[in-house]
């Protein structure tokens, strides 16, 4: 069963003045455990698609369902709550809270979810260890390299035990070694913990590792290739 479904998803920016069709009738299904890349040139609609799936933007037409729940049209408060409990985000610019340590950045989302203090501690330490940052729990973002910051961001995205993780150009600011290490780590999470990852990227290194590659052109799905089935569920 698909955990994410988009139905005739369309987005038009500036409909009154100079209309820009960012998405055109996008119909997609994502299964649990997928490791999927959405590729395409700049302006092809990759990020817009991810924003729609993540409930960060509203479509002009069509709708998105996550786990059978229609998130399009939800009230702001419901949507924020939904994102908190169902979706993990990894951004191109890491977007960590600079005044928090790595440990606090990861546990922050669990604080919002009102986790038990001890369980939160165990989970945050477990995740930071899993992303290779044992010994750097107390480091602040500016004390970490770009690759390390993105690892903290991945740990943060995983902390709330989301249904899936949306990663927008996660490797764009990383050197090759850091990018490969990050991808290794995410692939491991995907295989071992069945975490669903959906990337938007035009980084060939990411595309090469994906098991499903969706190519977008001018806001429409140009190609949807499954290299081989996802590890579980798909």
């Amino acid at each position: 069963m698909a955990i994410i479904t988009t139905h005739n998803l369309s987005k038009v920016y500036n409909p009154e003045t100079v209309p820009v069709h960012a998405l055109r009738d996008v119909n997609l299904e994502f299964e649990e455990g997928e490791f999927t890349t959405v590729r395409g040139p700049s302006g092809s609609g990759k990020t817009t698609l991810l924003n729609m799936i993540g409930g960060l933007d509203t479509p002009s037409d069509g709708y998105v369902e996550v786990d059978g729940t229609r998130i399009t049209g939800m009230k702001d408060r419901e949507l924020i709550d939904f994102r908190l409990n169902h979706i993990g985000f990894v951004f191109q610019a890491y977007n960590l809270i600079p005044v928090f340590t790595a440990y606090e950045n990861v546990s922050f989302i669990m604080l919002l979810q009102k986790w038990d203090k001890q369980k939160m501690k165990e989970r945050a330490e477990e995740l930071l260890t899993a992303v290779g940052l044992k010994g750097k729990f107390d480091s602040r973002p500016k004390q970490l390299s770009g690759g390390e910051q993105q690892r903290v961001a991945v740990a943060r995205a995983l902390a709330s035990r989301p249904k899936f993780i949306l990663a927008d150009e996660p490797t764009a600011n990383l050197d090759t070694d850091s990018a490969m290490n990050l991808l290794d780590m995410m692939e491991k999470m995907n295989k071992e913990e069945n975490v669903t990852f959906i990337f938007s990227t035009h980084d060939q290194r990411v595309i090469d590792r994906a098991r499903r590659v969706i190519t977008m052109v001018d806001g429409a799905i140009h190609k949807d290739e499954k290299k081989y089935p996802p590890l579980k569920g798909g």
Partner: peptide, 16 residues
Amino acid sequence: MKELGMLLAIGMSKLR
């Protein structure tokens, strides 16, 4: 701006 946007994106309520 970016950080506040991120907080809203990951699920921090507007009230918070």
